[in-house]
Design a protein around this nucleic acid. Structure first.
Length: 454
RNA sequence: GUGGGCGUAGCUCAGCUGGUAGAGCGCCGGUCUGUGGCACCGGAUGUCGCGGGUUCAAUCCCCGUCGCCCACCCCA
């Protein structure tokens, strides 16, 4: 970086600028509108939580927790000692590092920027005794998540998710189907084209371990294992289900012949899955069964789903979700049913943009072209009145040549220029020019407001 | 963590086998202190990402480094 441009956004973070932000707002407003019609209320959550919360929910040995979270000792809890070392940093480089080491003592809490929000929602459900509300509790959220990994298309270190969770009450398949219906409705409302819904059931605590054991045994057979790539060979031990996810062309024929979980579900899970599908048909939701769709984390069970959209590159999932009936209990709550999803907002926006869904251009109604210091007071008054009536108004801060002013109005895309010079101030007859055709006419202030409101 | 591609003006890019930089767009100003879009004229911003090497001479070749992008890994 040159001396001139010293600072830039940290790797994997980015600025969202107008007019693109208009599209973000549109997406979020649409989410609010659609989710409300399904009876969901918004929850706003902290963006940092105790590291332990994520370690428990997501799993301490996962890459997410062990490598990809932004974690640090809470400077507040570290108190005087930490603060003192930090303050020494400028005169004694390394002091801060020492403080960090000191901060790892059991007395001090580690905190993390949230890598996802499901754990926080569950924590809030427990903390606020939501089990005593009418069940189930239906919540949605939007906001930034943080994950320390190599950025690529549609993947950032600070990324945004729109998610929803249904907690408590029944695990009836109707709920799974309705949650999926809600996402699909949301995407349809946005005009997102080419979406594909994949669903699967990954069984429960009873039947999944049996299947995993079977799968692992199969994968471990020498004649199969030797045909797999290094990554998949490693997964046989670490997470055999993920072998099914492999994108390697050479592995596809092998994977096709592996045992499928749908054929090894217990009776209860099989019935649940069948009913989810039936309920999707009832709701007119088109789905593809994808027996290879798995979730990486242990707490997921039964229904899993994923929605892909075009234009996203390698990371083409725009929404992922599933049932996690055990999670609240893991976090110290009562046994509680749960299902939810998270939408990758960055990817959703990207897909909308690729499809040419341009953001609504900034609307500017009136450019106040005032001339001469004598007209300034009137210009301010006009701008206040117009804005008060809800119009978007640009009031130049400094005097400029008249031709310049109109040129500026044109570049800003204003619909009208309100021309205020000595004549107008003297007569009280303001000149309104329509930029598109160049026509203009005179109005008093009240007439002008009435005219523009038409 | 691994691999590949790319770094030249605010943006998109050109720059031949090495001779210390250009275009378009945009921005600002002028022609034009009461009439915009058009046209014409002018202007500014670059240590050609940074450091080193080879060379009489490096934007160009070599090495390193940083940054960005894409993919792998992983995936909430």
């Amino acid at each position: 970086m040159s001396e001139k441009q010293k600072f830039q956004a940290i790797k994997g973070t980015r600025d969202l600028l107008p007019p693109e932000t208009a599209l973000w707002n549109h997406v979020e407003h649409t989410a609010h509108a659609v989710f409300s019609t399904f009876g969901f209320g918004e929850i706003r959550l902290p963006i940092f939580e105790p590291t332990e919360l994520f370690a428990r929910a997501v799993g301490g040995e996962t890459d997410i927790v062990s490598k990809e979270m932004y974690s640090f000792p809470d400077p507040f809890d570290l108190g005087e000692l930490y603060a003192r070392f930090r303050s020494l940093e400028s005169i004694s480089p390394g002091a801060g590092h020492f403080a960090s080491i000191a901060g790892l003592s059991p007395d001090n809490q580690m905190i993390s920027l949230r890598p996802e929000a499901t754990a926080s929602v569950c924590r809030a459900y427990i903390q606020h005794g939501m089990h005593s509300l009418p069940q189930p509790v239906k919540l949605y959220y939007t906001g930034p998540m943080f994950r320390r990994e190599r950025p690529q298309k549609g993947r950032y270190r600070q990324f945004y998710q729109i998610g929803a969770e249904v907690l408590g009450g029944t695990d009836a398949p109707a709920i799974d189907a309705e949650v999926i219906e809600m996402v699909m409705t949301f995407f349809a409302r946005l005009g997102l084209a080419g979406v594909k819904l994949d669903i699967n059931s990954i069984g429960c605590r009873e039947c999944r371990p049996e299947y995993v054991k079977l799968l692992k045994a199969e994968l471990s057979k020498p004649e199969i294992k030797e045909k797999l790539g290094a990554d998949s060979q490693r997964r046989i031990e670490t997470n055999p289900l993920r072998v099914l996810d492999s994108k390697l062309e050479s592995e596809q024929p092998i994977i096709e012949k592996l045992p499928r979980i749908a054929e090894h579900l217990c009776a209860a899970c099989a019935a649940h899955y069948a009913s989810v599908k039936h309920n999707l048909v009832l709701r007119n939701v088109a789905y593809h069964e994808n027996w290879r769709l798995v979730r990486g984390l242990d707490y997921y069970m039964r229904t899993t789903f994923e929605i892909t959209a075009p234009g996203l590159g390698s990371q083409n999932a725009v929404c992922g979700g599933g049932r996690y009936d055990g999670l609240i209990e893991i976090l110290g709550g009562l046994p509680t049913k749960g299902i939810g999803f998270a939408i990758g907002e960055d990817r959703l926006i990207l897909s909308l943009q690729e499809a040419g869904k341009a953001p609504a251009p900034r609307r500017l109604d009136v450019y106040v072209a005032w001339m001469g210091e004598k007209a300034y007071d009137t210009a301010v008054r006009a701008a206040r009145a117009l804005r008060g009536a809800g119009f978007a108004v640009e009031l130049p801060a400094t005097a400029q040549k008249f031709g310049k002013a109109l040129g500026h109005a044109d570049k800003l895309g204003a619909r009208y220029a309100l021309i205020l010079g000595e004549d107008e101030v003297a007569s009280g007859q303001w000149t309104l020019k329509t930029l598109s055709d160049g026509s203009q006419s005179k109005f008093t202030e009240p007439e002008l407001l009435a005219h523009l409101k038409l």
